[in-house]
Amino acid sequence: MAEMNMAKAINKALYEALERDERVVVLGEDVGADEGVFRITEGLLAKFGDKRVIDTPLAESGIIGTSIGMAIYGLRPVAEIQFAGFDYYAFHQIESHASRFRNRTRGRVTVPMVMRFPYGGGIRALEHHSESRETYYAHTPGLKIVVPSGPRNARALLHSAIQDPDPVVYYEPKAIYRAFKEEVPDTIETLPIGRAQVVREGREITLISYGASLRQVLEAAEMLEEEDGVKAEVVDLLSIVPMDTKTIVDSVRKTGRAVVVHEAPRNCGIAAEVVARINEHVFLYLEAPVARVTGYDVPIPYFSKEKAYLPDADRILDACRQTLSF
């Protein structure tokens, strides 16, 4: 057991994967000597050399497109895109190829690869560095998308992603890279992709979220208990695709009320999908409309105003109270 932050935990997973599976290669811009702009690839070049830790030309489509070729050829590429705000350059390769090879070749040609995209706001970053666009990938059949929310699950999910036979978008909440530490066990752990976790139990309302927003949700849940005496259940999705419908609806069946939280824009966001599934499965258990606390349908404002855009505990608490008093 060692205590570490999420940045270190992801680094640890990469190190372990490179060590145990010789097919694994790490590639991207500045992942070598610079050890990644967020230092996620720290120590990897020194240990594994430039054959396996590959600094690429500055071209996202090139990174993802060649990763697809490598994966087809039997390697296990783990591609890093510096900021999720740049993955659109590679979108065509992801949508048209990474996600489709298995299907269009009826399983003959497969693309086991991981795409690490650091996403989200809250770090006073440059313009184009704070987006949350998981919906694009969730809307692309054939991909899986996982979003860790802390050091331990980050490391376990990355191992699962690397071992997965299909392409996985590993959406990294960069706001919490160094926000807190957790005990991470020495032995390698995995987490089943497609499984959510109930991280806080309660009976009166269900809060559903993932990634960096989970911290705000947990804070709101504490406030709700302290100030209003209401015990909220909190579900951490962990996987956006496949989505763990069962865990969501089991919780809402119990509580009858739910609030879904993410920092991505609201329109056609993941929350909309969660609400739809709740409607489909446990409609008759609802005591109130399911609320969404999300980013607004504007580009995430530059950092002078990003706080007002990102869901925080107060906004979540407010939505909870409205839902509870419906």
Binding site: G62, G65, T66, S67, G69, Q93, H97, R108, V109
Partner: peptide, 29 residues
């Protein structure tokens, strides 16, 4: 679009030019 057993081909690629990166990646591998 299923390459026959033992044929080291990728299938026909409709979005033009995008397959070149797969070839590059295969070459790198």
């Amino acid at each position: 679009a299923v390459p026959p057993e033992g044929v080291n081909d990728l299938p026909i690629c409709v979005p033009v030019g995008s397959q070149l990166l797969h070839a590059a990646g295969i070459g790198m591998a």
